[in-house]
Design a protein around this nucleic acid. Structure first.
Lengths: 255, 255
DNA sequence: CGGCTCGTTGATCAACCTCAATCAGTGTGG
DNA sequence: CCACACTGATTGAGGTTGATCAACGAGCCG
């Protein structure tokens, strides 16, 4: 970063906007700039009327709701290709918060543009609907995990799903290990468990030779057994064309 | 129904299609017929590549996933105005089943039409996205209920949410009672509880003078206390413009 | 070094489940 | 009309999963 600084603005919320830098090309007329969000910063807040949709370009984020007494439910994790912030209307308050887990770059698409983009590029509308369908399926899957599976099963499933999602989204991974920038508290809040119980259950899974999670690295030890515990393989949302969204939606000018 | 029968076909799955009868007018060129589904019949199946989206016109439906051993998670309840079957792509298998709870009439919109409708009517695309946002928020809300609330709180919230949804969707309701065509097993499967525990918790709620559910009728006894138990009122998804979708999307020719 | 976060382990506790019996309501066939 | 089956609600007794409270170690950072 030697000379590009005059294009870069850092906002009060810590986001960095590359004003004239490369961004997401949606239609001939619409280019939304890339925005960088450092780790642990909110992308939008619960209660906020968020003016943008965000397409994840790089990094990890997650969404959560909190109750007044501090209980927290993580709703979803977002990897590159995910469209964040789909809501019933531009005036609707977001019912949850989105926060970066690692440093994140997103393309911020103003909601005001949406209708106009749909007019010019109906395929974009198709992809937004497709992304929404993905999000719905993820949420439903999580719901079944939390509501109807034991901690052991749910944890196995979550690890399996994250593993396969990372694999399909991030082509620069191989072997049976991936980086997982999650604390046990994150995992617990995603599954409706305490971090203490996540720790114990993770221990059981390791002792059973199924998987290992240490120092932010998830290693699958026995793929067959893992899918067995996680339940029917067909129940796993493999998110078959998530990469299509990422590939075609995110045709940004990279440098 | 004296002379309209020649327009009506009953399919093997029990659905009734009014071939030339009134239906949903989406754009000048697109009219999808109304389809009637008797109570307790599937609208689409888990594992099926559903060729249609369904706009709920009348009645109740619900979506669920089942595990191999019979455990079931209800993902959402659908009232008039809801758009069912949003999915990542036309070739994707539905990961859940949708079933009618009462007799239901839906407008079936072929997925193949979608792109073409979007071209002609970008506002339709906006409304689909809006409906998807609604569905996502509902799912997230359920997730927090199931994962992070006690049975007492979750049940209070579910009843409150259903009550307000019925109120906004069905204008022909008044007073503090509504019809709720759910068994305690349904409620349990929605909240990740057993029907036995739903029964006990419902008993507590009634003894506390909060609400009463008997013979398919939900009566709110103390609205203030109910919202109190359900948590901050702002956390309730009141689904503020669901009626907008129903009103504008569902401009069918009624007779 | 002190203070922090994160993970780990132990002991106890409670929310919710399981199994089981009973009962009311409803429909069905004889 | 009644016996029977079936579904849904209710209540009791006892069991299990996972929560709570607490202590401690490792790593990290100012």
């Amino acid at each position: 970063m030697t000379m590009g600084n005059r294009f870069i603005t850092t906002r009060s919320n810590g986001h960095t906007v590359r004003k004239n830098g490369p961004g997401l090309v949606i239609a001939e007329r619409f280019v939304s700039p890339y925005e960088f969000v450092p780790a642990g910063k909110e992308i939008y807040f619960e209660g906020e009327r968020s003016a943008h949709l965000y397409l994840m370009i790089e990094g990890w984020a997650y969404q959560y709701q909190t109750l007044r007494d501090g209980r927290r439910q993580i709703l979803d994790f977002s990897l590159p290709g995910t469209l964040l912030g789909i809501s019933p209307g531009p005036a609707t308050k977001m019912p949850h918060t989105a926060e970066s887990l690692t440093g994140v770059t997103v393309a911020a698409i103003p909601r005001e543009w949406l209708r106009e983009i749909f007019v010019r590029e109906p395929d974009f509308a198709m992809r937004v609907v497709s992304a929404a369908g993905d999000t719905i399926n993820q949420a439903y899957d999580n719901l079944t995990d939390v509501g109807r599976r034991t901690a052991y099963e749910a944890l196995a499933r979550l690890m399996l799903r994250l593993f396969t999602r990372i694999r399909t989204q991030c082509p620069d991974t191989w072997g049976n290990s991936v980086e997982l920038p999650l604390t046990q508290a994150h995992i617990g809040d995603a599954l409706g468990l305490t971090s203490v119980h996540v720790c114990r259950t993770l221990g059981t899974l390791r002792r059973d030779g199924v998987l290992k999670l240490r120092d932010g690295t998830l290693t699958i030890l026995d793929f067959g057994r893992l899918t067995e515990i996680a339940g029917d393989g067909s129940e796993v949302v493999v998110s078959p064309r998530r990469d299509k969204v990422a590939g075609k939606l995110a045709e940004g000018t990279h440098e």
